[in-house]
Design a protein around this nucleic acid. Structure first.
Lengths: 191, 191
DNA sequence: GAGTCCATGTAATTGGTTACATGATTCC
DNA sequence: GGAATCATGTAACCAATTACATGGACTC
């Protein structure tokens, strides 16, 4: 149940309308938890009903009219509670790995193109994360900060930095591994 | 729609009953595509109806009686078709990252314990992948095979090896990154 | 014949996806 | 006033999760 909490987080950072949230999910929050506008509107409705957020009174309610939400005290409480809670890591589901395993049985025909497509996507994502890191945390991402010597970054800043660094590492994994798989598939196809 | 194809792959490797499949999903296939027995039985029913697999005639059909399936020609065809098809990479959904981002807003209380739990799980998974790699591909996992010089490994073997290596790399990513996050959170909590 | 696995299933619910509907605003 | 775009929503569907049901085989 992370979507409502992702939305609460986003709204605490800045009160927004559904469409604004959708855009922010496309750009930053959604790097770790994607959501479509339909999901977001549905969830905003539920959160409002539950008394965790409210529509700003200034924004009139009518279909087609912009409606801005802010987090209520109960919402902040719920988010704090959830942040300290725990759940089991969800088991992985990766369709590409299933394809590779299937290819081991029925042959690699067509697999190379698919691997190349994915590799391109991940390379692009990696470049984009790196650009963000360079812009938001210039030359800060690759170093360990000796204890207490971080240059005055707030809690928020430091955590956003490690998150982004996680994105960089994750995409680096994909790029390197897919390159390895591609090499193996090409070697097999040559024989 | 990867589950049916994961099942077809597993059944081509070895005809099995539902429960056997469930166990194999827990051990190997499921490292990349997990599934519960309920999902598997449901899907076996659909695949049988669609004429892609059949129950071996020897195994009687009755509730509580073991029923073994094998893949029909149409099933192999479908799997071959799917292997060569393509799909967009699915956007990531990682609850832990959402938690970290929420912690950046409402504070890191309780986060450290959750990070430690996840770190322990990933360390364990990494150790298990490494053991499998050592057992199935002794000292083969870390090297690049110069073209054509693989020691007689079949297509299957080589692809299983890169898959397992992907698992090792993926878990290595998690372990390293979570350690980094944990260090950052501890530094923040000290201040 | 009671208890415990082994094995196959059903049913209800949740969360996410896809397709579509409709009102408001702006610009020509 | 027509087209494009901003904005909010509904509805149908599908896959995965959770909880529960039932029968067969074996063991004490």
């Amino acid at each position: 149940m992370s979507l409502p909490h992702a939305i609460l987080t986003a709204l605490l950072e800045k009160p927004s309308s559904g469409l604004e949230l959708t855009r922010r999910f496309d750009k930053s929050i959604g790097f770790f938890w994607s959501a479509t506008h339909q999901q977001i509107y549905r969830e905003l409705g539920k959160l409002e009903q539950a008394g965790l957020i409210r529509a700003l009174p200034s924004t009139e309610r009518a279909r087609g009219r912009r409606k801005e939400y802010e987090v209520l005290a109960a919402g902040r409480g719920e988010l704090t509670r959830w942040t300290a809670s725990s759940d089991e890591p969800k088991p992985l589901r990766d369709a590409l790995a299933v394809r590779i395993r299937a290819a081991a049985v029925v042959g690699t025909a067509g697999l190379e193109a698919e691997l190349e497509r994915h590799l391109a996507v991940h390379r692009e994502q990696l470049a984009s994360y790196r650009a963000m890191a360079e812009r938001d945390f210039p030359r800060g991402g690759e170093r360990d900060f000796p204890r207490g010597e971080r240059g005055g970054g707030s809690e928020q800043t430091r955590l956003h930095e490690v998150l982004l660094h996680g994105g960089v590492r994750m995409e680096t994994f994909w790029v390197e591994w897919l390159a390895e798989v591609l090499e193996a598939v090409r070697a097999l196809d040559r024989d």
